[in-house]
Amino acid sequence: MTAFFMRPLRQLAQVFTANESPRQVAAGFTLGMMIGLLPKGNLVVLLLTLLLCSLRVNKPAGLLAAAIFSMVGFIFDPVAHQLGAWILVWDTARPLHSWLYELPMGPWLGLNNTVVVGQLLVGFYLIYPTYWFAHKFVSLLQPRLTKWLSRYRIIRWLRGAELGSHWRVDA
């Protein structure tokens, strides 16, 4: 029971304590960025969230990114709306959009919404930069932070709890 409640804190600590590779953290962060930018309440966000939970990426980093980019996303909304509108009314892409819309679950995808499409495009555009920066950032900071944080008892305790959790021993 304690492990269940401690898991978020443990996972937060993992972001900085090199239990997972920088690639996993960067991938999680990138997925979280996509989730955060997109308006909620559509299947695309649900699929991205499922991916975040199902893939071996750093979930806390993803959740952190989702929280950050949810707030940042509103800033991009006007641009995203313009971009999405341009794409959605683009005659060349119209058959594709119509096909997507007419799919049984088409409207649930939310791909007929200007902001969803715009933010998705912004997200796609930001995938590589986000991943690259996140990877670099984690690669640089993770060893130093690990050393610095390990001085604190609480972090040691959380890491111990993580090990205990691995070995099925509750802290």
Binding site: H81, G84, S98, N112, N113, V115, G118
Partner: peptide
């Protein structure tokens, strides 16, 4: 409608 963006209806 949605609070964010505009829904484009293809039918």
């Amino acid at each position: 409608g949605r609070s964010r963006g505009t829904n484009v209806l293809y039918s």
